[in-house]
C-alpha cells in the first residue's frame, strides 16, 4: 500500500474515532464523568441499523435515522435513571455505575441478538469509488470523512452561536454559577447525552461499514480508543476530540502497516502516554489551576 492510501485509511478510521470521542468529551466536559457505556451505545446503534436494513427491509438512510433515534432515547434514559441520582456522588461511584451500565447493555444485546458475529451490510455505503491518478478511494471513506467534517462544523457552530450551546459551555465551566443564572442544568446534561448518543449511532454505522463484523462486544475497544483520543486531544474540548481522533486513527493504521499488525493498539496507547507526559492536559486542553 502506498503512503497516501494509508494516510486516507488513517483519516477514515480517525474520523470514526473523532465522532465517538465527541460523545465522550462533551459528556466529560459537562457532567464531569467518564461514560464507559458510550462504546456500547455505538454497538446498539449498529445493531438497530443492521436490523433495519437486513431484517425489517427499511432503506439504509431511514434505518440510520431510526438507530439515531433509539440511541438518543437510550442515552437520555441511561442518564436519567442511572447517572442523575448520582449527581452529588463521588466520581468513582459514577464510574462504577457507568461500567455496570456497559455490562448491562452488552448482556442485553447478547440476549436479544445472540453471541454470533453478524456481518454488517456495506453495499449501500460502499458502492462506488473515485480514482485520482493511481489512487482509488472507496465511497465509504469519502462519506465517513465528509460526515465527520459536517458534524464537526455544525457542533462548533451550535456550541458557539446558539443559546442552548452557550448554556452547555456555561455548565461545563461552572455548574453552580450556571444554575444561578437560570440555566436548567439537568436539561442541559440530558441534551448533551442525547447529542452524544445520536453521534454514537452514526459512528456505529460508519465503523461497521469499515469493519463489517458486529457482536455485542464490538463497541468496547473502539470506545476505549476513542476515549483515549478524547484525552489526547484534551478532554472537554471539541476541536481536541477531532484532532486526537484523527491522530490516533492515522497512528494506528501506520503502526499496523509499518511495525506489526495487531500492535496498533499498543502503539495507540503509547501515543497517549507520551502526549500526556509532554502536555498533561492533552493537546488542546486548558491546564487546570488549583486554588487554595
Amino acid at each position: 500500500m502506498s503512503f497516501l492510501e494509508l494516510l486516507i485509511n488513517g483519516l477514515r478510521l480517525g474520523s470514526i474515532y473523532a465522532i465517538i470521542a465527541l460523545g465522550y468529551t462533551m459528556v466529560y466536559g459537562i457532567a464531569k464523568m467518564l461514560n464507559f457505556a458510550h462504546g456500547d451505545i455505538i454497538m446498539v446503534g449498529a445493531y438497530i441499523a443492521f436490523c433495519g436494513i437486513q431484517n425489517w427491509g427499511i432503506p439504509p438512510v431511514p434505518s440510520i435515522m431510526l438507530a439515531m433515534l433509539v440511541c438518543t432515547v437510550l442515552g437520555v434514559a441511561i442518564e436519567g435513571l442511572a447517572y442523575r441520582p448520582l449527581r452529588q456522588a463521588t466520581s468513582l461511584a459514577v464510574l462504577i455505575t457507568a461500567i455496570g451500565m456497559s455490562y448491562l447493555l452488552q448482556n442485553t444485546a447478547l440476549m436479544i441478538w445472540g453471541a454470533n458475529t453478524k456481518s454488517f451490510p456495506t453495499t449501500f455505503i460502499n458502492n462506488s469509488s473515485i480514482s485520482v491518478g493511481e489512487l482509488t478511494i472507496p465511497s465509504a471513506t469519502l462519506i465517513t470523512i465528509a460526515v465527520n467534517i459536517v458534524i464537526m462544523v455544525s457542533l462548533t457552530l451550535f456550541t458557539s452561536k446558539t443559546k442552548t450551546g452557550k448554556a452547555m459551555r456555561c455548565v461545563s465551566e461552572d455548574r453552580g454559577a450556571a444554575e444561578l443564572m437560570g440555566i436548567n442544568v439537568n436539561r442541559t446534561i440530558s441534551l448533551t447525552f442525547a447529542i452524544g448518543s445520536a453521534l454514537a449511532a452514526i459512528a456505529g454505522v460508519l465503523m461497521c461499514s469499515t469493519i463489517p463484523s458486529l457482536a455485542p462486544t464490538t463497541g468496547s475497544m473502539p470506545g476505549i480508543k476513542a476515549f483515549t483520543a478524547a484525552v489526547v486531544g484534551g478532554i472537554g474540548s471539541i476541536p481536541g476530540a477531532m484532532l486526537g481522533g484523527i491522530l490516533l486513527g492515522v497512528v494506528e493504521i501506520f503502526g499496523n502497516y509499518y511495525i506489526s499488525t495487531d500492535l496498533g493498539d499498543a502503539i495507540v496507547f503509547a501515543v497517549l502516554i507520551i502526549v500526556l507526559l509532554v502536555k498533561p492536559a492533552g493537546l488542546l486542553g486548558k491546564p487546570m489551576r488549583e486554588k487554595v
Binding site: L95, T228, V231, D262, L263, A266, F269, L272, I273, P280
Partner: peptide
Amino acid sequence: IPVLRLRGDYLAIVTLAFGEIIRNLVKW
C-alpha cells in the same frame, strides 16, 4: 514516575493504557 504526576481521571486512562499495552506486548 511519569504517571503519578497526572491527576484523577487522567491517571485512570493512562493506567488503563498501560494495562492494554502490556497485554498487547505479551501476545508477541
